[in-house]
Write a protein that binds this DNA or RNA. Structure first.
Length: 824
RNA sequence: GCCCGGGUGGCGGAAUGGGCAGACGCAAGGGACUUAAAAUCCCUUGGGGUGCAAACCCCGUGAGAGUUCGAGUCUCUCCCCGGGCACCA
């Protein structure tokens, strides 16, 4: 009964995919009506930065994994919104434009066009009706609006800060662009430090909440852990050490219990107290040391395991616990930007202080005696010196009334005791720094601020947004350290919005991470020109239900997005304070076991593979080559297996029969087991194992691993669920098969198959028989067999009896429907 | 240095509320079809051994110890690879 059109028709991916791309567009299959949708599901993927190289296979891996999830949810009955956009501002784009000597305003839109074509070719369920680009004034008007909201709330502040300066690039670099003290782009050029006034977002205000919420949001553990470490909470105390001039030096310590062992103090070279306290005799040395350290860039100062250096200021402080005079030193191992910029040094119980004290001959006083059997960090170097011990497992010595107390008890006791003397208080310290958003660059949204001699800092009125980035022929940064926009005099010279006198615009642009910190808020509301995000739509669609992306953004993009969302929540603009309900980090793809790189010449270019194999095969192979959340190894040889699998399904679909009701209990059982397994796997992004289960099912349909003769003409009732389960992975292919099976509507309007526990159940199971834990035989028994009968069956086996012999059985272990273990 | 993740056949990888190690796929070998090749189909495939054979035995999840009737899975020590942080007091 085969029809002419279906027999002998081979699977031609190019034809199938072209047909369905067009039909999806005509039928608007992937457009979601955001207003009327009844079960909204916001499926977000990380929007790409449109590089000149085009879409990377890593992007495709990320997008496909997210798309499979979105399509799966849709088949489960959700109304899925899957938008896309382009993160098109930023230093990467600008540097590339400089390199090829083309203006970014000309270059970037071309890259975007190319990306759009590539994205369409992959078969993603994207709703192109909500595309956004961060470089469009309609978008960045609201990026600037967010800046203004934060400014009004006191969360955007201007302060002087050190920055990395590359003399070769003639510009400021982000910390991430400095490698071992050298410029990323000029490995022979050392980066130096400059002080510039810059805009900061006070993300540190939110440190505690950002940390706290990590416990309740459903995110990948790896991502949460990275954020936890990045925020870097430390509990301890802030203690005051009086100086001889009457003021205090405040220090943060996690070990207030060791305060009796603080034999000297160290301030960061930049610490303001150094100016006040340094004695005239020591001043030349101190000044010389400060010059040396400030000549170094920020990054190389941080390179660890450097030999300790420092100088004595000539000044003394008083240890509030012992009332002893202790010397004040400066050293670059103390960082101005952490804690208070000064420390109490307890050399016997801190590795850095120990090294420093030994080098400069400072007193090392033991105040913690390690508990019995606990190893010290470094043994005593000579009989007159104590060992280094940094652990908590010990008791106090040389600590007055606290002697004999454990460290754990002493921490609280000593802090409280100092607090009553007014010398300290409990304190939690965070490693997180405020977010510097100023960039002395061209390709970004101008920061909407005006400087007026009379009125000071004046925000641009919201009605005047956007502050449009002016076309600038020469957008190159120069050595002045100010933004290229400072050359656009017509643009930056404006009347003050308050007093009308001549004023000037801020010429820095904002960090590209600000563009991407709120784009997910914009997608549902792209149609509105008069508001950043519509309250009704936002309330309906956000927070994001599923966000999938790479862990390379764990601490930057994801942290900034959480911060912006939290700030907008506090300011009354959003109902929720966490933007992404569920986040999953995908793994990384390597090629033939090695990291992909241009120099290795092993970069997978998606277009080539799609041209050769088709998008569906490529998609499915990417999902098959390893566990999605761990990544995997891309090997060209592996793709053919997926193609062969699809060919087999194609064959089944084109010969399927509706007219015959054939009894196929084996196939039916496998089908229901497959539905159960695949559904569970897709829930937790177990794509590789889901595909393996589908393959197993197809093998059964084709008569493998079963005595049952199902094929070659398989009933449609066994095939339709297979086609639906395949649809998220190979959407064009599944549509074509679905049509082949006689359907006129999209397979994505079908419902995900339900499994029947009854039908999935095996009525015979194979019991493993062990003797003393070693497998000695197997018996097939009815499922649900009782222990006693199972043991009887086991003992009846020849192979088992041989090992049991006549020995008495001491014990039997029975795992229902799985195993019998006889212990003799 | 600290914090995570991971070491399983020739290869990618399955199997962790402890219970048949190697699912699924690739590659390889043998066979069928073909004038031939490709494609397709069938069989074999962790290592070693006993047996004419049906079968059976031993070893095996980075290394070593431990817990257990039973360990790839749990505990301890160590080695290697990948990622993050890195003088954070």
């Amino acid at each position: 009964m085969r029809s002419e059109s279906s027999t002998g028709r081979r699977y031609d991916p190019e034809a199938v995919e072209g047909k369905w791309r067009q039909r999806w567009e005509e039928r608007r299959t992937n457009r979601t009506d955001l207003r009327t949708a009844d079960r909204p599901y916001y499926n977000l993927m990380m929007f790409p930065y449109p590089s000149a190289e085009g879409l990377h296979v890593g992007n495709v891996f990320a997008f496909v994994g997210s798309d499979v999830h979105g399509r799966f949810r849709r088949l489960q009955g959700w109304k899925v919104f899957e938008p896309i956009g382009f993160d098109a501002f930023g230093i990467h784009s600008e540097n590339y434009a400089l390199k090829v000597d083309t203006h970014p305003a000309e270059l970037i839109p071309k890259n975007i066009d190319r990306f759009r074509e590539q994205l369409q070719r992959i078969g993603l369920m994207l709703d192109w009706g909500h595309e956004l680009r961060t470089i469009d004034p309609e978008y960045y008007a609201w990026t600037q609006w967010i800046f203004l909201q934060l400014y009004k709330a006191g969360l955007a502040v201007r302060k002087e800060a050190p920055v990395n300066w590359c003399p070769e690039c003639k510009t400021v670099l982000a910390n991430e662009q400095v490698i071992d003290g050298m410029c990323e782009r000029h490995p022979d050029t050392a980066v130096s430090q400059r002080f510039l006034a810059q805009w900061f977002f006070r993300i540190t205000e939110f440190a505690e909440r950002l940390l706290e919420n990590l416990r309740i949001i459903d995110w990948s553990d790896s991502t949460r852990l990275m954020q936890t470490n990045w925020i870097g909470e430390s509990e301890g105390a802030e203690l005051a050490f009086p100086t001889e001039s009457g003021s205090d030096i405040r220090v943060f310590t996690t070990r207030p219990d060791t305060v009796f062992g603080a034999t000297y103090m160290v301030a960061a070279p930049e610490h303001p107290v150094v100016d006040q306290l340094t004695t005239p005799e020591q001043r030349p040395l101190v000044e010389e040391y400060r010059r040396r350290t400030s000549a170094m860039d920020l990054v190389s100062r941080r390179v660890g395991e450097k030999e300790k250096t420092g100088v004595f200021t000539g000044a003394f402080c008083v240890n509030p616990a012992t009332s002893e005079r202790i010397p004040l030193w400066i050293a670059d191992y103390v960082l101005m930007e952490y804690g208070t910029g000064a420390i109490m040094a307890v050399p016997a119980h801190d590795a850095r202080d120990y090294e420093f004290a030994r080098k400069f001959g400072l007193e090392i006083r033991q105040v913690v005696k390690p508990a019995a059997g606990v190893e010290v960090d470094a043994p005593a170097p000579s009989p007159d010196l104590p060992p280094l011990f940094t652990g908590w497992d010990g008791t106090m010595v040389n600590s007055g009334e606290f002697d004999g107390m454990t460290c754990a008890d002493a921490v609280g006791a000593i802090t409280d005791w100092l607090a009553t003397k007014g010398a300290g208080m409990r304190q939690t310290q965070y490693r997180l720094h405020d977010w510097c958003i100023s960039r002395q660059r061209y390709w970004g949204p101008p920061i909407p601020i005006i400087y007026c001699d009379a009125c000071g800092i004046v925000p641009v009125p919201e009605a005047d947004l956007p502050v449009v980035l002016p076309p600038l022929e020469d957008f190159r940064p120069d050595e002045s350290g100010v933004s290229p926009l400072a050359r656009a005099e017509d643009w930056y010279r404006v009347p003050c919005p308050v007093c009308g006198s001549t004023a000037r615009r801020e010429t820095d642009v904002s960090d590209t991470f600000l563009d991407s910190a709120w784009y997910f808020l914009r997608y549902p509301s792209t149609e509105f020109a008069d508001r950043p995000f519509d309250p009704a739509l936002t309330s309906k669609w956000l927070p994001v239900d599923s966000y999938i992306g790479g862990n390379e953004h764990a601490v930057l993009h994801l942290m900034y997005s959480r911060f912006i969302t939290m700030a907008l929540h506090d300011l009354g603009h959003l109902e929720f304070e966490e933007p992404f309900t569920r986040f999953r980090a995908h793994g990384m793809i390597v090629k033939d076991g090695a990291k992909m790189s241009k120099s290795r010449g092993n970069v997978v270019i998606p277009d080539e593979y799609i041209a050769k194999w088709g998008a569906d095969t490529f998609r499915m192979y990417l999902m098959f080559l390893g566990p999605y959340q761990e990544g995997g190894d891309f090997r060209d040889e592996g793709i053919s297996g997926i193609r062969r699998f699809l060919d087999k399904v194609w064959g089944l679909a084109s010969t399927a029969r509706r007219d015959v009701e054939k009894e196929s209990p084996d196939a039916t059982r496998t089908l229901h087991q497959t539905i159960r397994g695949v559904t569970e796997d897709l829930e937790h992004l177990g794509y590789n194992t889901a595909i393996a289960k589908l393959m197993t099912y197809v093998n059964v349909l084709r008569g493998k691993g079963s005595d049952e003769d199902v094929g070659p003409e398989v009933g449609a009732e066994l095939l339709e669920p297979l086609v639906i389960m395949l649809a998220p992975l190979a959407p064009h292919f599944a549509e074509e098969c679905w049509e082949q099976l006689g359907h006129e509507t999209s397979v994505f309007d079908a419902r995900w198959p339900a499994y029947d526990e009854e039908l999935a159940r095996e009525d015979q199971v194979e019991l493993v028989i062990q003797v003393n834990g070693k497998v000695r035989g197997r018996v097939t028994v009815p499922a649900g067999i009782e222990e006693q009968s199972a043991v009887e069956r086991a003992l009846a086996e020849d192979g088992v009896r041989r090992f049991v012999d006549a020995k008495p059985i001491k014990k039997t272990v029975y795992v229902p429907d799985k195993l019998v273990n006889l212990v003799i």
